[in-house]
Design a protein around this nucleic acid. Structure first.
Lengths: 146, 146
DNA sequence: TTGAACAGTTCAACTCTTGAACTAGTTATG
DNA sequence: CATAACTAGTTCAAGAGTTGAACTGTTCAA
C-alpha cells in the first residue's frame, strides 16, 4: 500500500474514533451525573478488577504521572469509596481497595455505562461484533506492547 | 443473545477502548510536546476540514458547552493560530479560520499523530483494516444519530 | 552504614470543563 | 413599530485532571 492509501486509512480511523469517543464520553458523563466523573468510574473499575492495586499500577495503566492518580484517589477516598491500606512488610506501598459503598457505586456506574453503550453494540450482528472486537482487541494488544 | 453474553461483549469493548485510548492519547500528547494539546490539535483539525466554522458548531461536534470552546479558541488565537472573523450580515456570528501559522502547526501536529498511529494500523492486513474501519465507521454513524 | 532507589504525596501552575450571568444582535408577534 | 423571545458568543468562578519538581518515608545493596 502506498503512503496516500495509509493517509486515507489513518483519516478514516481518526474520524471514527473522534466521533465515538466524544459522543460516548458525553453520554456516559451525563449518565454518571454528579456522582462520579468518567476517570473516577474507570479508577473504581480498575481496582475492582484486580481486587486491590497500587498508585504506581494505576499510573501505568492510565498512562499518567503518579501525582495525577493521587489526586483522583484522594477525591474517591474523601467520598468514602476507597480505602488506603499500607503493606505491613514494605511500608512504602499503599494498597487501594474499594469500600462496600465504593463497590455499590461502581456497580451502579457500570450499569449506567452499559445502558449507554449496549444499545449501539446491539445494532450489529453477532458475527459483526465478534469480528470488530477481535480486531479492536488485536489493536489494543499491539498498542500495549510498549 | 442473552444478557450475560451482552455483558461479556460490553466488557471486551470497554477494555479494548480503554487501552487504545489511553495509550494512543499518551503517545500523541508526548509527540505534540508543548506546542499543542490534544484538544487544540483536534480543534485546528476540525477548522481545517471545514475551512471555517463557528463556536456553536465546534461545541456540538466536541459535545461540550460553548464556553469550553471559547477557552480553547482564545488560547489558540493568543498563539496566533486562529483568526476570529465577524459575519457582516449576522453580526452575532464569529467565523474561526486558521492563520498561515495555524495551518503549518496543524500539519506538523497531524504528521506527528500519523507517526504514532500508523505503525499500529500497518500491523493489520489490508482486508482486516478495511473490515475494522467499516465496522468502526458504522458504530460512529449510529452514535452520531442523536 | 550510608547512598541509591523506590512508593507515594504535596504543591503550583496549567488546561479543560460546566453552568450561570452577561453582551450584543436578530427575529417574531401583537 | 415596539418589545419580547430567541440566538451567538463571552466572561467568570469553581472544580477535575494533569505535569513536573520537590519532598517524606522506606527499603536495599555496596
Amino acid at each position: 500500500m502506498d503512503v496516500g492509501k495509509w493517509k486515507s486509512i489513518f483519516g478514516r480511523y481518526e474520524a471514527a474514533s473522534f466521533t465515538v469517543n466524544k459522543r460516548f464520553g458525553s453520554m456516559i458523563k451525563e449518565q454518571l451525573q454528579d456522582v462520579l466523573t468518567v476517570e473516577q468510574q474507570m479508577t473504581l473499575s480498575y481496582i475492582k478488577r484486580f481486587g486491590s492495586c497500587t498508585t504506581t499500577e494505576l499510573a501505568e495503566a492510565f498512562c499518567v504521572q503518579k501525582s495525577a492518580i493521587t489526586a483522583i484517589v484522594t477525591r474517591l477516598a474523601e467520598k468514602g469509596y476507597i480505602h488506603r491500606i499500607r503493606d505491613e512488610k514494605d511500608r512504602r506501598i499503599v494498597y487501594l481497595k474499594l469500600t462496600e459503598e465504593g463497590l455499590k457505586v461502581f456497580q451502579w456506574g457500570e450499569e449506567k455505562v452499559f445502558e449507554v453503550v449496549s444499545p449501539y453494540l446491539k445494532t450489529f450482528s453477532e458475527e459483526e461484533i465478534e469480528t470488530f472486537l477481535t480486531l479492536y482487541e488485536k489493536l489494543a494488544s499491539q498498542v500495549n506492547e510498549e
